[in-house]
Design a protein around this nucleic acid. Sequence first.
DNA 1: CCTAGCAAGTTCCGAAACAGCACTATAAGC
DNA 2: GCTTATAGTGCTGTTTCGGAACTTGCTAGG
Lengths: 112, 112
Amino acid sequence: MKWSELSDNWCPVARTLSVLGDRWTLLILRDCLLGLSRFEQFAESSGMTRHILADRLKRLVEAGILVRNPYSEAPKRYDYILTEKGQELAPALMTLRDWGKKHLPVRRASTS
Amino acid sequence: MKWSELSDNWCPVARTLSVLGDRWTLLILRDCLLGLSRFEQFAESSGMTRHILADRLKRLVEAGILVRNPYSEAPKRYDYILTEKGQELAPALMTLRDWGKKHLPVRRASTS
DNA sequence: CCTAGCAAGTTCCGAAACAGCACTATAAGC
DNA sequence: GCTTATAGTGCTGTTTCGGAACTTGCTAGG
């Protein structure tokens, strides 16, 4: 089964995953909720390749989760702002964060 | 950046995604929470290939989210049971489900 | 004994996605 | 007219994925 076919699945969890079911998309949204909005900021914060970032931003805009907003006319520049639909993903990010904090402690030497 | 490198990220959301940040893993957990436990059940329910399913189950066991439980000795057979750690992902699934129900209605002809 | 069936995987190959890096486009500043 | 800043694209090799067949270990039937 293809990823895209999930979007018509009977299960709302599956449909949700059809939009944000890869490792990078939720990281972009995390950054958005932290106040980031620009391509270069996302690229640096998440460490993903620019190629993937561009693709995921496009998908998120198509899904109505972000809007591509021109913030500069002179050299045409765009940043990405959460829609209300996107902001309502905050609770989901919170529950994932809480689970991670509880069950996936950092395995660095500094923590022990 | 590689997927696996996320597991040491400072951000708990990123660490969580290092475990369940692909399209299929959360579907397996959804099925577990619905009471499924066997390989063939997961394969049929989610529609993923057996190859990927086997890989994801292995990862989930390694992550301590599922346990591989022998339920038959005669022909060695195993099923997969949620640990407490895994059950605590239920709230996360709920929030994703709620968001999907609200923002991603099924696009079938029957809905219009 | 021989074959079929069930369940949990494993193997193989072509297709798609990804990582890494360089490159483009447009304009501002020196 | 050269450098810097920003938002992407192109290119190339590697990794992962999708689909279907095959394996293993046992049971049931003829």
